[in-house]
Structure formats: structure tokens, C-alpha cells
Design a protein around this nucleic acid. Structure first.
Lengths: 210, 210
DNA sequence: TGCTACATACCGACCGGTTGGTATGTTTGT
DNA sequence: ACAAACATACCAACCGGTCGGTATGTAGCA
């Protein structure tokens, strides 16, 4: 990183390509999205593309980092951090993830999860960038989970449970893609919530009905 | 199902192409696997390919059905059906899925899950074939879950929980692809087991340690 | 201020290789 | 003999990537 002189004021070709990649690749996949498709959607030319990225793979990896940056900003400023009780914060996070599911499938699914499944064997750069986006986000959940475990006297591996929440979401996305609707993800998020409630011995469920 | 003239005695080009597709596409994805790659791996020529399949998409969908047939045979004859208690059968299924995880990533991940993520927006045939493989398998778990729910007096939506088990597996596969090892799937399967135990009020865990 | 020197951002025509698909054989089982 | 099962040869479109060039700064110096 460290390329753009401080903050670029107008949306440069680089930014537009990154944004286009996140939209188009979630729709059609990485290999099925051509460089020309990306350029057309971003309103730039191929010259601009290869001026900013040395290859299509490099764009894919850079977009994964961009995705990580964008989403981490979204989650950092989300209201699920407000509750005083750590378990409430964890449950509020799960509810927040469920609330995020709206619109068409490519709009609420995960760029990193989509990309890594397709490219894990072909490009280490892409795989690492996607892994970082997923696992770094999971790490932000560890503190609340660990605090809840201590307060409620429950024995849990906090990093493991944090990763599991992401697995449930990613898997729900896949079933929803297969089903063609958001039913499966919503269902699985509800099961995840129930798991956390049972783990920590809480029985209410202020979320929606399954 | 029901296409080959009775039982083909020797591995025809069609069978070999189907098997090659399941291996190669799990390794590299659908779009990144060319028809020539498939033919080379199957030891046949392009003429044979387009004699049996009218397009590459058609091969992808046929391979998903083939995958569904193969795996349903495997699960039907697996030993997890043996226990007398329905909850034991459900837990044995989960343990069986964990035991299936061995070798390299493309060997234990799901063809249908991999393919549908990439092609859900491009081909309805492929999407439907993958959805069928996933959700039909989930349906085979419903009876044991429903029976366990009744016996243990627990209120659960059996079809929903059955689908959730598949979501956890698919999500685990994605995290494992990102991580480069089977740690994440194994972890998530353990969480799934713990969820089922807690749901049905059982506290032992004869599975492996997390 | 005004000129040179150089960097960055971007354009779009173009290239060679690859792709999915086709047209036309030849072999094989019955 | 005849159709199904395969092989061989080929094609047009498309793909990622390159290249020569331009427009717009901006830093240095007199």
C-alpha cells in the first residue's frame, strides 16, 4: 500500500475498478468476469486497468483488501458494540448480520468468500488477501466472546467460535445461492444465534422468528 | 439418474468425463477448467465430449447429478444409520462427516457447493442440479432429526436444522480453502456437534477433542 | 515568471494464444 | 448394413496483456 498521495479527492480509475470488481465478481465470479467487463463497468479503458494493476489477479487481490477495509469500517461503526453485557454484544452482532441481508443475492454475499473458493488453488496473493479479510474480521469478535465466556463461566475457545460464525455465514450464502433466495442464510443465522444462546445459557430470543 | 442403458460395463467416455469434471472443477473451478483440460484428464477427445454433452454447461450440470448419485450411495451405506437412538444417528452422521475430511482440500470439499457459487447466476441448469444435490441430501437427515425431536421433547424445525448442517459444512470448506488447511472445517463440525448436543440436552462428547 | 525535465494517469489499437463449439471422418458393436 | 461412439481437423470469438502515444501536472532553476 502507500501509493495515493494522502486521500485522492475524486474517484480515480483505480477506485472505480475496485468497486466494479466487487460488484461484478460477486455476480458472475472471477474467471467469468473479463478485464473488458471490468473496464466497461468502471468507465475506464484497458490502459488504465494495467496502469494500476499489473495483472487481473492483482486486481482481484487488491479488491479483496479493499473489501476488507470497507467492511471493517462498516462493522467498526455499527451499533452492536453498544450493549454493556458482552453476550448481548455477540448476539447483537448476529442480529446485525441478519439485518444486513437485503436485496439481491450478489448484494449481500461476501466478495472474499466468493473469490477464495474459486481462486484458492490458482493464486496465493488472492488466497492470502481473502483469508486476511475473513479471519481479521473474525478476530474483531474474539474479545466480546472471551469476555462473555468469563462472565458467564462457560468454557469456549473464543477464536474458534469467532471463526465458526463466519463459516455459518459463508455456508448460508452458498445454500442461498443454490436456493435462489435468502431463506437458507436467514435460517442458519437463527441456528447460530440459538447455538450461542444455548452455549451461554440464555434462553430468550429477541430476534425474528425462524 | 436413469440414463445409461442399464449398467455400462466398461468406463465409457461419458463416465470418465464426469469423474474428471468432479476432480478438476473442485481443484480449479468451473470457468478455469477448459474443455480441453477435461478431455485430456479423461483420456478422450473433444469429439467424444460434444457427442455426450451439448455444451460445457451441460457437462457441469450432469456432473452435479453424478455427484449427487455417488454421494447418496456413499451415505446410504454408511454406518451412521446403525444406532437405535435417533439422536445417536444424527451425532454419528456429524462424526462421519468429520471422518470424511482427509487428504488434500479438493478431495474432501463439495463439488456442488463449489460449482453453484460460481455458476448460480449464469446457468439455471447448473444451479438446479447443485441445489438438488445439496437439498436432497439434507432431506435424508430430516427423519432422524424429527424422531429425535419427538423422543427428547425438543422443539426443532427438522428440515431447517438439516439444511443448517449442510451450511456449516459448506462454510467450513470455504474457510479451509482460505486457510489452506482442514482446521476450520473440523472446528466448525465440532461446533455443529456441540449445538446439536445442547439442543437435545445431551452433554457427552465422544467425538475428538477440538 | 517562464522554461525545461520528468512523472503520473490514462487512452485504445493491437497481438498471440486459448476457448467453446463444429464439421467431417473412422471405428465398433449388433 | 447401420447407428452409436469416438477421433481429427479446424474455426471464429474472445481473452489477458502490450505498446506507442497523449494530457496534465509539478519540481527545479534562472
Amino acid at each position: 500500500m502507500a501509493q495515493s498521495p494522502s486521500t485522492a479527492r475524486k474517484p480515480s480509475a483505480r477506485e472505480k475498478l475496485l468497486d466494479a470488481a466487487i460488484i461484478l465478481i460477486r455476480q458472475s465470479g472471477f474467471a467469468a468476469t473479463s478485464v473488458d467487463d471490468l473496464c466497461k463497468a468502471a468507465g475506464v479503458t484497458k490502459g488504465a486497468f494495467f496502469h494500476h494493476f499489473e495483472s487481473k489477479d492483482a486486481l482481484g487481490a487488491a479488491a479483496a483488501r479493499h473489501w476488507g477495509d470497507t467492511t471493517s469500517g462498516l462493522f467498526a461503526s455499527a451499533p452492536y458494540h453498544d450493549p454493556a453485557d458482552p453476550l448481548d454484544r455477540v448476539l447483537a452482532y448476529i442480529d446485525f448480520r441478519r439485518d444486513l441481508i437485503a436485496g439481491e443475492i450478489p448484494e449481500y454475499t461476501c466478495y472474499a468468500g466468493t473469490l477464495v473458493q474459486e481462486a484458492y488453488g490458482a493464486s496465493v496473493d488472492i488466497r492470502d488477501a481473502c483469508a486476511s479479510a475473513i479471519f481479521e474480521h473474525a478476530k474483531t469478535l474474539e474479545a466480546d466472546i472471551a469476555e462473555a465466556a468469563e462472565r458467564y463461566g462457560v468454557e469456549v475457545d473464543a477464536p474458534s467460535l469467532a471463526r465458526h460464525t463466519q463459516a455459518v455465514l459463508q455456508g448460508g450464502f452458498i445454500l442461498s445461492k443454490a436456493a435462489g433466495n435468502d431463506g437458507p442464510v436467514r435460517e442458519s443465522i437463527n441456528h447460530l444465534r440459538r447455538y450461542v444462546e444455548l452455549l451461554f445459557g440464555r434462553s430468550d430470543s429477541p430476534g425474528e422468528t425462524a
